[in-house]
């Protein structure tokens, strides 16, 4: 996993609520046996026509919007536990997803892949959507160290929550498996002491 660095970027707005993981990466793309190439199929059914040509009205196909921050409506990532959703977001090049609410499993999966989910207030979210609609050059700055997100066009800043352990993992580029492997002796002890 890569270390998470402070980031300033333009954003890609997706003002839709309840975006589920079947939209992020449809099931028919889950047949791969490695983690590569999912970015090309991120939001596939919204992004491409049946013949594979880009749908003009979808935001990823709008050349005015780009950047490594995805901003999405409330309850992003609900549904299936497929980590392929996080691989698709990461593979496309997003480092941060901003929303006012995330589904649990998706949040975990993103963190395990070095993608930072940032929860902001409904007002902060609505302001971003309003501002970028007329001005795609609006940028956000996400600083994990200080746990702040700043809307650079109006200077508003919010703090966001993250579990201190997860924060350290992201900053150091370390993952849970490394940690768990270092605790193997505790597992053996637990197994030995179990009565049930």
């Amino acid at each position: 996993m890569n270390k998470f660095e402070k980031l300033t970027s333009t954003v890609v707005p997706l003002p839709i609520e309840n975006v589920d993981t079947d939209q992020i990466i449809p099931a028919r793309f889950l047949k791969a046996t490695d983690k590569n190439g999912f970015g090309d199929n991120l939001f596939a059914d919204w992004r491409y026509e049946k013949d594979g040509s880009p749908k003009k009205d979808f935001i990823l196909n709008n050349p005015s919007y780009s950047g490594s921050i995805l901003v999405a409506g409330k309850n992003f990532g609900s549904g299936s536990s497929r980590e392929h959703a996080a691989w698709a977001i990461d593979g496309y090049g997003f480092k941060v997803v901003v929303s006012s609410f995330f589904a649990d499993i998706f949040r975990n999966n993103s963190l395990n892949n070095g993608v930072l989910p940032v929860v902001v207030s409904a007002e902060f979210l609505a302001e971003i959507f309003n501002l970028v609609e007329s001005d795609p050059s609006v940028t956000l700055t996400v600083d994990l160290e200080s746990q702040t997100i700043t809307n650079n066009s109006n200077g508003k800043t919010e703090n966001f929550d993250i579990n201190p352990y997860k924060k350290e993992c992201l900053l150091k580029g370390m993952d849970d498996i490394d940690y768990l492997l270092s605790k193997k002796d505790l597992v053996l002890q637990y197994e030995a002491n179990r009565t049930l």
Binding site: R82, I105, N113, D176, I177, L181, V187
Partner: peptide, 22 residues
């Protein structure tokens, strides 16, 4: 409960996962 693939790897490797208490 459902888990992601990184967590599948954790369980296979250590029979444990890291979870925040819901």
């Amino acid at each position: 409960f459902g888990i992601g693939t990184s967590e599948v790897e954790m369980v296979l490797a250590t029979q444990c996962i890291l979870q925040t208490r819901p």
